[in-house]
Write a protein that binds this DNA or RNA. Structure first.
Lengths: 82, 82, 82, 82
DNA sequence: ACCTCGCTGTCAATGC
DNA sequence: GCATTGACAGCGAGGT
């Protein structure tokens, strides 16, 4: 026997770790790209925070969104806040 | 010499750590209380997520809030979303 | 009947919101105190990040901690990292 | 004039938003892949939490890591914790 | 169905 | 003052 179970285990572990690291690198790169787009947008006059809100709103189901918005307004009015 | 510098240092470090832990415990208790209030509110029919939104809105400066809201709407309309 | 259901509901909602805000204020104060302690410690030469690690380690169950640490070391050695 | 400034602005905004959404989608897909790898590893007997720790440790600069670790141990020993 | 835990996004603090 | 980094809270998934 030229190869022990231990070696196989090591290979397997290494493979798992490297696959994860590989994907994490890719993810980090994309995160950077997103950041760059926001920075660029800011450079031409957009409000980054508002843009983030827009992106977030577009992600949500319109029905759900409307429903919750109404509820929030109801609560706000009950508290005497326009 | 009955007391070394090391002992003083240990005492100082211990004091720091214990003060931090003491405050963290207090903080965690309050966090639990907040959670309980939300749970209780949910029990009598309130929508927790909407309540959180209300609390969050009340925290913000009304002027700022209004301004950003307007901006978001402008963006949304430009995108053809009511 | 001098009071409508609506008024009761308003009172209830206001009570909930105010209780939450009250606790959140208390929580924020404690968070500030914790921050101050770290700042003070930094001022007398402690490494804040290391202190945070110590606080975090002390929070964990020693048994659990030891077990996981061993496992991590096993993995690290399999990967050829001391 | 067949095209107003407003239209250009709309196009620009739409472009920004779509580019962001596009990258966010890609990022979410990768995050899913990472999750899958962990799940798979768990299926063949690995401790997911320990794996995460390993990945995290490998990310850090060895020098820095060693230095801070030493500091943490110093503090721990001063507190009488092995 | 609850509850814990990890992930993500937000916010504030710090360094350049 | 801006950009980066780290702490923190909210959200969602998965396990019990």
């Amino acid at each position: 026997m030229t190869e022990s179970i231990g070696d196989n285990a090591k290979q397997q572990l290494l493979s798992i770790i490297e696959r994860i690291e590989n994907r994490e690198t890719a993810k980090a790169e994309i995160a950077d790209e997103i950041k760059e787009i926001y920075t660029e947008a800011k450079g031409v006059g957009y409000d980054v925070k508002a843009l983030r809100t827009v992106v977030s709103l577009r992600k949500q189901d319109p029905e759900e969104r409307k429903a919750r918005e109404t509820l929030v307004e109801t609560y706000m009015q009950a508290l005497g806040i326009a």
